[in-house]
Amino acid sequence: MLELWIRHEVRESERRCALSPADAGILIRSGVRITVEESPQRIYPLEDYVAQGCVTASAGDWVDAPESTVILGLKELPEEPAQLRHRQVMFGHAYKGQPGAQRLLERFEAGGGLLLDLESLADEAGRRQAAFGYWAGFAGAALGVLQQHGDLHPPIAATTSAELAERLRKYRDRPARTALVIGALGRSGRGAAAALVEAGVTPTGWDVAETRNLDRDALLRHNLLVNCVLAGPGTEAFLQRADLARPESQLTCVVDVSCDPGSPWNALPLYDAVTTWDAPAITVGSAAVIAIDNLPSLLPRDATDTFSADLTPHLRDLEGLTGAWQQCVTAYRTAVSAR
């Protein structure tokens, strides 16, 4: 029998969960056993999971779970234990040379566990099967609009997409601003465009064709840039710090939804560390730069429900690591062998 264990997220600003109570109930009724840890910030209360038949545990108890249990989470693990012996479903951010990547892989290797990185959960054509991209783009573009109108007041509290859209609509009668979304055809790009339209802005959309021979002068003629490109080998920088210092630059805000400052393939090497919900923007040249690495947590219920609906059909394949999970296994083994 497959046993899933939903762990508490150690990051205080992380309110999402990979699995909603409703989808947990669907899995339980199909024969899956699910344990859910207590978590004070998770958008869904523990009682909602209990009502669906989940078993409860204290935060952090996953370390003592039976070795056959699959641990389900989203963001970074605590520093201990040093050896990771379980199969862990999460966003590991360990395959692009990011800070801390080698240490994480060492912990899995030492404990005999397995990192099933959700970024690698893809079909044979490379299409990701579950992602938070749409709401990341929506949230990022919305924060960019708020920044431009002097209405970004930290600390920023979680909300819903309906409430955020209503807040954006009040800017529709303000002077028009120009916005550029790079990676416009992907999930994040579509979400960013939707938020901008709510604010009365019709964005310019660039994707692979428009960035193959990048027109940086045209880029700089926009007021707001929202980067939604998933960087990889060969990705070139769209902007450098010197570009934002150019007198002809009209950029007043740059939102990096992809947010990968530690990667050698970072498309926006304008900053050295991510920004936070308490300090969402830094100033670089003429522009404010927003680079929050868990943007969908602004919309935790919307993000959880959408992601969970995508992920749930694949969770049934975890017991035999069949289907798209084979892509995760291959990515992990390749990364470990390359260390």
Results as ranks from 00 to 15, higher is better:
276 T>L: 06
103 R>H: 15
19 L>C: 01
64 D>G: 11
31 G>Y: 02
217 D>N: 11
254 V>S: 01
316 R>N: 05
274 V>R: 14
204 T>S: 08
316 R>T: 12
184 A>K: 14
20 S>E: 04
305 D>Q: 14
242 A>T: 09
287 A>K: 00
187 R>H: 06
50 V>P: 06
102 Q>C: 11
36 V>N: 10
254 V>Y: 03
86 H>S: 12
101 A>F: 06
175 P>H: 11
223 N>E: 15
148 Q>P: 02
44 Y>S: 07
231 A>W: 06
12 E>C: 07
282 I>N: 02
97 G>R: 13
255 V>M: 05
157 A>C: 12
70 V>S: 04
207 D>S: 14
30 S>E: 15
151 D>A: 14
47 E>A: 14
25 G>K: 03
302 D>K: 00
146 L>D: 03
162 A>N: 13
332 Y>T: 01
327 Q>R: 14
147 Q>Y: 02
88 Q>S: 15
295 L>P: 02
158 A>Q: 02
12 E>Q: 12
207 D>V: 01
332 Y>D: 02
264 P>E: 00
311 L>V: 03
320 G>D: 02
64 D>V: 08
9 E>N: 04
34 I>H: 01
282 I>R: 05
44 Y>G: 11
230 L>G: 11
144 G>Q: 08
33 R>E: 03
259 C>E: 08
221 R>N: 08
280 P>N: 01
221 R>V: 00
264 P>K: 05
28 I>P: 02
122 A>K: 11
277 W>A: 05
292 I>L: 08
220 L>P: 05
336 V>G: 02
13 S>E: 09
171 Y>I: 10
1 M>Y: 14
122 A>T: 04
226 V>I: 12
308 S>D: 08
214 L>A: 10
38 E>D: 15
152 L>I: 02
2 L>D: 07
50 V>K: 13
316 R>K: 14
230 L>V: 09
135 W>S: 05
169 R>P: 04
139 A>K: 07
214 L>F: 14
191 G>L: 02
264 P>V: 04
15 R>V: 08
183 G>I: 04
251 L>R: 04
235 T>F: 11
189 G>I: 03
317 D>A: 10
51 A>L: 01
197 V>K: 07
80 E>R: 06
172 R>C: 12
93 H>V: 10
27 L>E: 00
207 D>H: 12
133 G>F: 00
73 G>F: 02
3 E>F: 07
116 L>M: 06
82 A>Q: 09
7 R>T: 07
84 L>D: 06
61 D>V: 06
31 G>C: 03
